[in-house]
Design a protein around this nucleic acid. Structure first.
Lengths: 194, 194
DNA sequence: TGTACATCAGTGAACGCGCGTTCACTGATGTAC
DNA sequence: TGTACATCAGTGAACGCGCGTTCACTGATGTAC
């Protein structure tokens, strides 16, 4: 039955929120439209009143995922940086390479959870990934050493690469000792370099 | 119709070879049993005479992918290290972070192409990933600086993390300037550290 | 402000399709004498 | 070495199932007077 315009907008937002989380947990192919809508508390038919197609939804939910990830990462980084209003690199690296992040991909980094899958999606998704990575790199630049902006940008790119690779490997190898070892080794190397 | 025992073994090997390549190109969910067997020049029914299930095949093809990747990486690294019999770190990093590797995932790194997907597969696949990463890290240790073995191992883990993350990001963001920029920034940071 | 009607968000059955998997069958290979 | 038969690698139709997507329908919301 019909809902308020306001409620309809909230419903759509909720599907995006739920989708961005489920995609990170299960991959783009790991969650279907029916399952997604059931998790959002709606029926699958409503999906096509809210979005053009699953592909279009993937692009929009991915953008949402990058926004949510960046925000919660900065918040977690601040908490680890002895509470200043700006996070420090050490806090950001510690939060990213934590077991909490490793074990909670649904609220975690898009690049680590869906970067490889994104390369096989539509150009729209890759454009979202491009903008998402740029936003993350901009944030990392502000806490990276170097006088010139291009130095700080190169440093931020290298830092983010190290973070994404370490988390990806840590999740891939299961829960043996290697999983935490790679997180620690990457954190040490990144902090030593900066 | 029936084939020679020898031919049957070759057929099975060929399916593994083709599968390990197609999985890296399209993801574990991106290639089905019928398509796979067609690419291998066989009919889909034969698959279940060769393997127990798609899941079992995924584990075996992944192990094959790690072997093939490590071998061809070392070969490419040697070629870039002015032809010595042992590759140098610089040659390995250059080969890994090349446009050729970025644009040819089918013969490239398993961790970058399937690491994130592997975390959502069966425990058998994660075990294969664990062993594959250990083999790669062992190889990288032999070209990493440091007197003590644990120093070289930590360095190898950090190096591999940087490589995997940079390649993943480079592939995810499409073919804009960011794609090559991240490869260059990661290479510079890794070589400066070692 | 109250009534009459049009709009449209949401429902749920149904669609074609490709998935992983099974199975009765074929006929060349491998074996026994 | 040659014949007779059993084995079994490979074939291709068929299975149930879940996928993304469509559509006729419902009934509360929004609008016009």
């Amino acid at each position: 039955v019909k809902a308020t315009r306001e409620q309809a907008a909230l419903n759509r937002e909720h599907v995006l929120e739920v989708g961005s989380q489920l995609f990170r947990e299960r991959g783009y192919d790991g969650i279907g439209v029916s399952d997604l809508m059931r998790h959002a508390g709606q029926t699958h038919g409503a999906f096509y009143g809210q979005f053009d197609s699953k592909d279009a939804f993937i692009a929009e939910a991915s953008a949402r995922g990058f926004e949510q990830m960046l925000e919660s990462w900065v918040r977690a980084g601040q908490a680890r940086s002895s509470g200043g209003s700006t996070p420090l690199l050490e806090g950001l690296v510690g939060a990213y390479l934590s077991r909490a992040h490793r074990d909670n991909p649904g609220n975690g980094c898009m690049a680590a959870a869906l970067g490889a899958d994104g390369a096989r999606q539509t150009p729209a998704v890759r454009e979202v990934m491009n903008e998402g990575v740029e936003a993350i790199v901009d944030m990392l630049m502000s806490v990276s050493p170097g006088e010139a902006a291009n130095e700080r940008r190169a440093s931020a790119l290298a830092t983010f690469s190290g973070l994404v690779g370490a988390l990806t490997i840590s999740r891939a190898v299961g829960d043996g000792p290697l999983s935490t070892e790679v997180l620690a080794a990457a954190a040490a190397a990144i902090l030593a370099r900066n």
